[in-house]
Design a protein around this nucleic acid. Sequence first.
DNA 1: CACTTGACCTGTCCGC
DNA 2: TGCGGACAGGTCAAGT
Length: 288
Amino acid sequence: MPELPEVETIKRGLTKKIIGLKIQKIEVLNPKSFQGNSNLLRGQQILNIWRKAKILGVDLTGEISLLFHLKMSGQIILQGETKSLKDTVIGGHPTKDMLEDMPNKSTRVIFELSDHSKIFFNDQRKFGWIKIMNIRDLANDLFLKRLGPEPFEKEFTPQILKENLIKHKNWFVKVALLDQTKVSGIGNIYACEALFNAKINPQKRISELTDDDFTRLHKGIIDTLNLSLAKGGSSKLHYFNEAGEKGYFLDFAFVYDRKDQPCKICQTPISKITLGGRGTYFCPICQK
DNA sequence: CACTTGACCTGTCCGC
DNA sequence: TGCGGACAGGTCAAGT
């Protein structure tokens, strides 16, 4: 899925466009994609939009919030009333880099808003979900409660990173980065890229990391996520922002999805291995 | 316990 | 061109 930069990009885009609007109508095309009674949403106004890790939250009147998790292939696409998607895009990427008009065969849920725009929740693989939660239950949600620090918040320091990871001395560092209870929002792309940035081999065990490694890893995480935000996120297969545009971070990636291609620093072919069941890319020379 | 594999789904790409 | 298998931005559950 969409990892932190992709969900954050969607959050920022939606915030500019739908705060204050009301939800007029909900159409659930795939029941498994939507948990809760969708009738509760009708007439509720959108108050605030937030992100925690890879979860997107939409606070509504009526003391309820809508939570979205896009998992591997989810998309949230906002489309205006009359204009086609490509007409609404400002800044003009080529047409081939935009989604076609909605709905399509992956559309699972459709929201109609008070300005007659529509939000399409698309999800090819159906792993993603939307759920309605009472605001009081949000504070008790186990997944949200256990999430580690947000990389862009002050609480995330090299020391905290070390403290959270050191409990698992024998874990591969790459696998540890994917654990959302240690740090929030990192997925497979940014785990690989952050480790390259920090010059750490993904097969290193946590116990092998020095304080200097933790410091570089902390910086590598933040720098990598920042760069991706600046490039609009990563579009490998499914990711588009709320306006249907791709993100271009992967054009700048050093290792992810670059198996056998030359390292951009030392020209050594990039390696691909499997760690914790996930494809893992790294430069065997640059990452010690 | 710690660690790995499978399940959830659909689609695409690569090798024979 | 067809077909099978591997693989894909995530997370949880079951198995070893």
